[in-house]
C-alpha cells in the first residue's frame, strides 16, 4: 500500500482567471509521472489535497471530470495561506496533488434517475465535473432529465461561462442560469437561486434527485423550496466542507458526530446530515 501522505508531483499546465473579480483561478495540472494519472482515477464529487511544499495543503473539489483525460483541474478561491501562494504561482511550476479523496455523488443510485443540480457562487466545481460526466455520450442515456439551476451575483461571477452558454444551447440539459440583479446583455433569469429553483425546477418524486452545492445562505433558503417541490430528505444530496488535514479519516478534525467529512463524506444526503451534529 502506498504512503497516503505522499502527493503525486504535478506541473501547472495552465492557469485561467475564473471570475471577473479575479478571486478565483482555474488551475490545470498534468502529472509528472504518467502512471500517477491512472492511480488518481476519480469520480465526480471527490476532492484532493493541493500540496505546496513549505506552505501546506488545501482540500479542493475536483473540477475536471473523469471523462476528461490527460489532466486534472481545480478552481480555487484565494482565501488563505496556501491558496494565496497558489494564485501567485506560474505555468510550469511544480507542486503536488494528493487524492482522490472522499466519496462521490452516488452515481450507481442516480443511474436512470432525473437529476436536478442547484449551485451557487463558486461551489460549482464538482457540479461542473458531474455535468460533464453525465453529458458524455457514453453516459447521457444512463440518466433521465437533467436540470441545472446555477446562480451568481453577476454574469462575470459565474464559473465556466463558456460551457454554461454551450449547455444552454443543448436540448438534453435544461439550464436555468440566474444572477442577483439585472445586467446589460443578460438574457437569462434574474433573482436569487432559491426562487428560481422554485419556479423552474422539476417536481420531486421517487425518480428525481437533487444535488445542492452553494454558500450557506443559499442552502438555507433552497432546502425549504426543495421540500415544497416534493423532494424527500433522502433525495437531496449535499457536499459538506470542514477544515481538513489528512483527508482520509485519521487526523480527526473534520468530524461531525461519528462521520468524518473527509472520508465518510463530503457527500451526504440531507437525511444523513439531519442525524449528525451541525458542526460544519
Amino acid at each position: 500500500m502506498e504512503n497516503p501522505y505522499l502527493p503525486y508531483p504535478v506541473r501547472i499546465d495552465d492557469i485561467e482567471i475564473a471570475t471577473e473579480d479575479k478571486s478565483l483561478k482555474t488551475f490545470k495540472f498534468v502529472f509528472i509521472n504518467k502512471e500517477d494519472e491512472e492511480k488518481f482515477a476519480y469520480k465526480a464529487g471527490q476532492f484532493a489535497e493541493l500540496s505546496i511544499p513549505g506552505k501546506g495543503e488545501i482540500p479542493i473539489g475536483i473540477a475536471s471530470s473523469p471523462v476528461e483525460k490527460g489532466f486534472v483541474t481545480f478552481t480555487v478561491n484565494r482565501a488563505g495561506l496556501v491558496t494565496t501562494h497558489l494564485h501567485n504561482m506560474k505555468k510550469g511550476d511544480v507542486m503536488g496533488i494528493r487524492g482522490p479523496l472522499g466519496n462521490w455523488y452516488p452515481w450507481d443510485l442516480l443511474a436512470g434517475k432525473n437529476i436536478l443540480i442547484v449551485g451557487g457562487g463558486f461551489a460549482f466545481t464538482t457540479l461542473r465535473s458531474s455535468i460533464i460526466y453525465m453529458l458524455d455520450p457514453e453516459n447521457r442515456s444512463r440518466f433521465g432529465t437533467i436540470d441545472v439551476v446555477y446562480g451568481a451575483r453577476t454574469p462575470g461571477m459565474l464559473l465556466y461561462k463558456d460551457e454554461l452558454i454551450e449547455w444552454e444551447k443543448r436540448d438534453d440539459i435544461n439550464m436555468h442560469l440566474t444572477i442577483d440583479s439585472p445586467a446589460e446583455g443578460w438574457a437569462y433569469n434574474v433573482g436569487f437561486t432559491p426562487p428560481v429553483t422554485e419556479e423552474k425546477a422539476p417536481k420531486g418524486d421517487e425518480n428525481t434527485y437533487a444535488i445542492v452545492c452553494g454558500p450557506p445562505v443559499m442552502i438555507k433558503f433552497t432546502l425549504p423550496v426543495l421540500e415544497k417541490l416534493g423532494y424527500t430528505h433522502d433525495h437531496i444530496i449535499m457536499s459538506l466542507e470542514n477544515r481538513m488535514k489528512c483527508g482520509f479519516g485519521m487526523c480527526g478534525r473534520c468530524g461531525i458526530g461519528k462521520e468524518l467529512v473527509c472520508k465518510d463524506g463530503p457527500v451526504f444526503t440531507l437525511d444523513q446530515i439531519n442525524q449528525t451534529p451541525r458542526e460544519y
Binding site: 511544499p53 488535514k245 487526523c251
Partner: peptide
C-alpha cells in the same frame, strides 16, 4: 487521543512535513 496536525517547516531551502 490520536488527533494530529500536519505542518511544513522550512529551514533555508530544505524542509520537512
Amino acid at each position: 487521543c490520536w488527533c494530529f496536525d500536519i505542518q511544513d517547516e522550512t529551514h533555508g531551502k530544505k524542509g520537512v512535513r
